Amino acid sequence: MERTVYINGEYVSESEAKISVFDRGFLFADAVYEVTAVLEGLLIDNHGHLERLERSCRELGIKLPVTSEELTEIQKTLIEKNSLIEGGVYLQLTRGCEGDRDFSYSDDIEPTLVLFTQERALINSSYAQKGIKILSMDDLRWKRRDIKTTSLLPACLAKQLAKQSGCDDVWLIENGLITEGGSSNAYIVTADDKVVTRPLSNDILHGITRASLLQLAKDFDIEIEEREFTIEEAYEAKEAFVSSATTFIWPVVSIDGKTIGSGKPGSLATKLRDIYIKMAIDTAR
């Protein structure tokens, strides 16, 4: 069966879901997006995602045509129409379409809003169970990574290179310091069990899962250090892991061919993942 997709106020089958070839999201990647995880048919951490969407829109001057409450109802309707139990809801908002291709645009341009669901195994993920292999490389992205835009070509190319190299993902490096993963925030665990992750700035995405994990760590007396760290420090870490909306936490078992810790998912990453999933479901009910 075809999925039902939402486009600008209408629910249509995926084969009928179309936007103009002159849409600025298509021509210029002039668009922002969010992905909210779904567990047991429930939206996970959705409030944070919609708040970040509003921030991205303010930063870029893109109109948000519906309220957060209306967006939540659209998401829930898609979950119901597509009988989604586990996976995610993808949301993309472009600046819109205004005549022919032109770099400039008017202030009254109407945006394009698209949402669709994706079915995916999130809890019983093989990557969570066995861990992932990371390849490090230079961070070639623009300087406003705190805005969740669809300008993802550098990340796509980096992830593809990692895949071709026998790895699962990338960690990006700028000025000798880890910024983040290809689509995730990056963490290491020191020998004395401190969780280290880069502090928030324009250099990294302000991860919604990251915020929840740091609060959980504090609640369970796990010490956090928000500071920059080098790839060399990561090589020597007791554990390493990544977080994002649809991975929750995936342990990192090797970086650039160097084994991290025992080479198996670490106990602290595993504990945080289990706590987060339970908390997320309980909160969403």
Score class of each variant (00 low, 15 high):
R227M: 11
I224V: 08
T259C: 15
G48K: 02
G48D: 02
A155D: 08
A269I: 06
A31T: 05
A269Y: 03
P154L: 09
S15I: 11
V242T: 07
E239W: 05
L42K: 11
M279A: 07
L71A: 09
Q215N: 13
S243T: 09
P251V: 02
G99V: 08
S184P: 10
G88Y: 00
Y105T: 06
I208P: 10
W171R: 07
E70C: 06
F220V: 13
N8Y: 03
L272D: 02
D139G: 12
T117P: 06
V12G: 08
T94R: 01
K163A: 14
A186N: 07
V35H: 03
Q129K: 13
T36G: 08
Q118H: 00
E233F: 09
D274E: 09
A191V: 06
V189S: 01
L214I: 11
T72A: 08
W142I: 03
L50K: 13
V89D: 05
D107H: 13
Y6V: 07
L42H: 11
N124Q: 10
H206T: 11
A191C: 05
A217W: 01
S15Y: 03
E225H: 06
Y127C: 09
K271V: 05
K163W: 12
L200W: 02
D219A: 13
G99S: 11
I109K: 11
I123M: 12
L272G: 06
S56I: 07
G207F: 10
D203N: 08
T209S: 07
D282T: 01
E10D: 07
R145Q: 15
I222K: 10
Y90P: 04
S212W: 01
F103Q: 15
P199M: 09
N46H: 15
F220E: 13
Y90L: 09
N175L: 03
L113V: 10
A162G: 12
K76F: 10
I224G: 06
